[in-house]
Design a protein around this nucleic acid. Structure first.
Lengths: 244, 244
DNA sequence: CGACGCTTTGAGGAGATTCAAGACACGTGG
DNA sequence: CCACGTGTCTTGAATCTCCTCAAAGCGTCG
């Protein structure tokens, strides 16, 4: 059972809306005031489910709107002209996808569940509606999309470093994102395959495997299949600073 | 004298504003109606000049607002913790920078002129102002920022291909962007150094140089220092399709 | 005209890939 | 509950692409 599947929703019996969602400080509502959150909440479809391997949306299909993950994890992928997959990002609870369809109104990427996911959906036509009544929503989307741009630049910076540093950074990055979401930062399950990690980082799955074993042999981490435990976070961090 | 410096502004003697700018179908006004363009035009500072090597804004400084290049060219760069430069993008007339400061209100990147540039400036505080009177402006910014995200994904896809393909794609990409802007698509001046090209593509300047010479020896291009002529565009394009 | 920076070219080496094979984990059905 | 089969992960050896280091050529600008 994946750590990411553990339900963290409120224990009351009221239906969960944006107002009482535990992810409100991460997701679309971040930065909106109470009233604005209420307006968004009215337009969001909740409790959509996808199982492992199922797509939330497909590249080439019309813009569906914004998707906010509530539980589980997903990957955002793109395909080149030969059909080769590129894992653009891994998506954790509270994170938003869909920007890849906003500019052209056609999705540029495919979002696929890595395990059972529950997500909220703000449909495309309701975004236009909201942008008239609640202009600050568009501001929020602009903010999030620029956040994405910033993190793309970070990924670009990492892509110039060695395979070891990329893997170390990947582990620390996932760890930090889980921590912010209230999960354990030192012990978690990697819901994606070595192949998908490698694809995302720009190395082969063999290289990922070798580096994970190397980190294990140096007592930086402990790995049993997809389960991962960080044993020496500080030293793992040092890896990123080292020359060479 | 750089091709990019050739003035393409209207030949009338009226001052240039967004309404009669030749770049209106590329820049911020793209997608806005006449009235909205007028509103934007009132808030834009025009005719800002920077010379080669000068910064338009610096990483770490407060968000300046959006910058639209009118003539010349620039590079958008980021720096890692060791001060290593990463060339995130090259900027041509009609293109917009500044998104890197929008999310955090602190610029994440530095924009530097590669030759004398003339740019328009939509100050940060006026953006807030516009977002109230002209909500569609924020929509436009959201569109552009998602465009940027799409093109980042394209760059990510290219970064998985061989150095030769990256250079071929780079040349074709610049060529296409110049064409759309009304410049010659087959003969132009590369305002950036081999070092900067390599940095942007993730290869060394020696490798860029070798590949440019290779393309020249195969009669795909003709290069004299920074001046470049595409001799066989079709064949250059084929390079991208080939396996291996 | 000289000096500096940018570009080109060469030789050797390192890091990551490719190909191949074996180990392990997980889900299915007996 | 265990045996089996498939897909994922690990490990090894050979290869290759690109980098590093070094030096020479060229262009540009004071």
């Amino acid at each position: 059972m994946s750590d990411l599947n553990i339900s963290k929703t409120s224990t009351t019996h009221r239906p969960v809306t944006c107002e009482n969602c535990n992810l409100d400080n991460l997701c679309i509502p971040k930065g909106l005031d109470r009233q604005e959150i209420g307006e968004v909440a009215l337009l969001v479809n909740r409790n959509n489910i996808r199982h492992k391997g199922e797509a939330i949306y497909h590249a080439g299909s019309p813009f569906r709107g914004m998707i906010a993950l509530r539980s589980g994890s997903a990957k955002l992928t793109s395909f080149d002209q030969d059909g080769n997959e590129l894992v653009v990002a891994f998506i954790l609870p509270g994170e938003i996808v869909g920007f890849d369809g906003l500019a052209t109104q056609i999705h540029n990427c495919t979002a696929i569940a890595l395990e059972t996911v529950n997500y909220c959906h703000l449909p495309a036509h309701k975004i236009e509606q909201l942008s008239l009544n609640t202009p600050s929503l568009v501001n929020v989307l602009l903010q999030r999309s620029c956040d994405e741009l910033d993190s793309q630049v970070q990924k670009l910076l990492m892509s110039r470093r060695s395979a070891e540093k990329r893997v170390a950074n990947f582990i620390l990055n996932i760890s930090e994102r889980l921590r912010v979401r209230g999960y354990s930062e030192l012990e978690f399950r990697l819901s994606m395959s070595r192949e998908e990690i490698g694809n995302h980082l720009g190395v082969t799955h063999e290289t990922v495997s070798r580096i994970i074993q190397l980190f294990q042999s140096r007592k930086l981490i402990e790995v049993k299949s997809k389960q991962l435990r960080i044993m020496d976070k500080k030293e793992l961090f040092n890896y990123l600073q080292l020359a060479h």
